[in-house]
Each structure stands twice: as C-alpha cells, then as structure tokens.
Amino acid sequence: MTVDVQYYVLLSMAVFCIGLFGVLTRRNALLFLMSVELMLNAANINLIAFAFYHGNLTGQLFALFTMALAAAEVAVGLGIILVLYRNFRDVDVTVPRTMRW
C-alpha cells in the first residue's frame, strides 16, 4: 500500500505555497517564522518522499540536517525578534522603518 510520489510532491507544493503565502502576507514576525518553517517542512516532505522513491537514504539524511538547521534558524530568529521587541515594542515586521525599505 504505497502512495505515488507525485501526491507527496503535490502535498509538499501545497504546504510550500501556504508557507509562501504566509511569508508574503503576515506582518507578525512570529507568524512569518512559522510560515518559513512550513516552507522548510515542505522541502522535508519532498526529500523523504523522494528518498523512498529513489530507494536511497540521502534524502532522509538531508531532511535530518534540514530540521537541525531549521531549528537553529528559529533560535537565531527568535533572538532577533526578542531584540526587535525590546527596541520597537512590537513584533510587526513593518514597524521598523528607521531605514528606507
């Protein structure tokens, strides 16, 4: 009972697009971060599905690394959002306008 790989790709693309949509529309830095995580996980879905499809472990392994790096990214991102809040009293990414965008 296996699912064809293209359905996984469709799923991952859907997840990716949801993430991208979130990235483009969310103003809250935390939601932005979550959207990015969605995009990363879409890639993970792909990697694992393809690892299964191709019958090698490379993709799974890379998915592990992706997870680790995503976590590190979140850690750094949260740190930045913290100092952002401290400086601007807000986590809205459109608030900081000290420089021209």
Binding site: V5, S12, F16, N46, F50, H54, I80, P96, T98
Partner: peptide, 29 residues
C-alpha cells in the same frame, strides 16, 4: 538600525534558504 537590519536580513534570508532547500529537494527528486 542594527536590529532592524538584522530582522530584515533574517527574514529575507530565511525565506531564501527555504526556497533554496526546496529547490534542493526538487533537484534531488
């Protein structure tokens, strides 16, 4: 300024790395 710069760099960096890794997954596929 520094915080704002860091935020913007991070936001765009995070998105682009997500795009990059998705690209990697497609190439792998």
């Amino acid at each position: 300024g520094s915080v704002e710069a860091g935020l913007k760099y991070f936001l765009i960096g995070a998105v682009s790395s997500a795009i990059f890794v998705y690209g990697v997954s497609l190439v792998y596929g």
